[in-house]
């Protein structure tokens, strides 16, 4: 049997062949992540290529939630890049960011987030006093979209509010930019946008969700560390995780804000 013939055999079965290779070799890790197709949000629209998207009516039956799998985050910063472009966030301000936690053998915790993790951590040196690393991981942060938000409570002019489908938004045509919501938010996700001079924060890409798309950061995440979906939809990935044995945690639970942002495999050191 000569090489040429072998090549033909491979080519004829190429698809199944590659499939087998993929499943056999690295199926254990990467392939576990269920691909987030637009099935979640109904049919793919044909006019998608033109970006002429129709808005879907508010899905009042949905219970949207965001999940971050800390063990899957590689700290590449793609989510932050995508978020800044998608939402015109001014430089130096952050709708989302990625923190790096490093715990040394003395159980000393070092946290950093240069440029909000936007440039990735591949070339970010560790703090010079760290001698030996015991544990290290990345923690993406974004709006917790609380069920009991402190920010909407304190807003004097009701410019920030929870929509009927459960998103906390800021009406930038009504906001007076007093900054009270920034004080009230336990998670530091709010800021006064330098360009609009109004309060601003992550919306979980409400404008994309209403068009049946995933938030920009979820779309950009290469490892599926960021997940978004409807907890009332048994087919959704978040539903499956929520009802599985995974360790789920929310940030600053004691404050009673009831965040809808859940962390999977989160260490208790994370604030």
């Amino acid at each position: 049997m000569n090489v040429k013939v072998t090549q033909e055999i491979i080519d004829s079965n190429r698809r199944t062949f590659i499939d087998k290779v993929i499943k056999g070799t690295i199926g254990g890790s990467l392939m576990l992540m269920i691909p987030m197709s637009s099935k979640l949000f109904g049919e793919v629209l044909s006019e998608e290529a033109t970006l002429k998207n129709t808005i879907n009516p508010m899905n009042l039956k949905a219970n949207y939630c965001f999940m971050v799998d800390v063990s899957a985050c590689i700290g590449c910063g793609n989510c932050c890049v995508a978020d800044r472009k998608e939402n015109n966030v001014p430089e130096g301000q952050y709708r989302t960011w990625v923190e790096r936690y490093v715990i040394d053998m003395m159980n000393q915790i070092y946290v950093d987030s240069p440029n909000g993790g936007e440039k990735g951590y591949a070339n970010t040196p560790l703090h010079e006093t760290i001698k030996e690393v015991k544990e290290a991981f990345f923690v993406p942060k974004l709006c917790n979209m609380c069920d009991e938000p402190s920010c909407t409570q304190v807003c004097p002019v009701a410019a920030t509010f929870t929509t009927p489908d459960g998103f906390v938004l800021v009406d930038k045509e009504h906001c007076v930019a007093c900054g009270y919501c920034i004080q009230a938010c336990p998670y530091g996700v709010r800021f006064i946008n330098e360009e609009t001079k109004t309060a601003d924060k992550c919306t979980w890409c409400y404008h994309r969700v209403r068009k049946g798309k995933l938030p920009a950061c979820v779309n950009a995440c290469p490892t599926g560390a960021r997940k978004f979906g409807d907890l009332n939809d048994p087919q959704s990935e978040v539903f499956k995780i929520y009802h599985s044995a995974s360790r789920l945690r929310v940030l600053k639970k004691d404050l009673g804000n009831e965040p809808q942002l859940y962390y999977i495999n989160l260490h208790e050191e994370v604030v």
């Binding site: 998608e48 009701a158 410019a159 929509t163 045509e173 009504h174 409400y206 404008h207």
Partner: peptide, 23 residues
Amino acid sequence: GYYRGDYINEEANRNMKYGTNDT
């Protein structure tokens, strides 16, 4: 609710910059 209802549509109508792979 006690807020400017139109803002929800204004925000929902905001153009996307990123599509999806299906795009």
